[in-house]
């Protein structure tokens, strides 16, 4: 009753209406206690750490974003939720770019197992990680950074290299459009 009255009253000021609505919604969620059983995924701080990376593209922000994604994985497992689409793949891609191929593969495989829809994409990323780790000598994740450091400097394949097999666009079309 009061809520309805307030929200019509404050329509002149959408910001205030938004705040009230937010409060009301927060109360609803808290009161019914349905937040947990109904939750599909835990996305935690994903969007905010990503936004921070864009505002300030420093390594420190990137590390925070990685930490946020690792927390999402941990919390999802705790709460018995499926890890959201893309989280493992994004972690894998960051590992890949850092030359940590064993980690990258582990993450891509996790995404692949969890989401059959990702098969084409993760298979491609896995092949890329394999190609980037040179002759395929398996190295444990832990010493990856240390021992592969020198190797990967020369051996890292850029996305463009990896795309050469299957370009997104038929040659010439992109340029024609421009």
């Amino acid at each position: 009753m009061t809520m309805a009255h307030e929200s019509t009253h404050s329509l002149a000021n959408p910001l205030r209406a938004a705040q009230l609505a937010l409060l009301a919604a927060a109360l609803c969620v808290l009161c019914t206690g349905c937040a947990k059983p109904n939750a599909m995924y835990c996305m935690d701080n994903y969007s905010s750490t990503l936004y921070a990376c864009r505002k300030n593209p420093a390594q420190e922000q990137q590390d925070k974003h990685v930490k946020a994604m690792q927390d999402i994985v941990a919390k999802s497992e705790q709460r018995n939720l499926r890890v959201p689409p893309g989280i493992f793949a994004e972690l894998g891609y960051i590992s890949l770019k850092a030359g940590q191929m064993a980690d990258a593969k582990k993450y891509f495989e996790a995404e692949n197992r969890l989401y059959p829809e990702s098969k084409v994409f993760t298979t491609r990323l896995l092949a890329w990680a394999d190609a980037s780790s040179g002759t395929g000598a398996e190295k444990p994740a832990a010493d990856g950074a240390a021992t592969e450091g020198a190797d990967s400097k020369g051996g890292v394949i850029t996305p463009a290299d990896a795309m050469n097999d299957a370009p997104v666009l038929p040659a010439g079309e992109g340029a024609a459009h421009e």
Partner: peptide, 10 residues
């Protein structure tokens, strides 16, 4: 992601 699709990581 919350609409229920597999979304490739942007």
């Amino acid at each position: 992601v919350f609409t229920g699709y597999y979304v490739l990581p942007y």
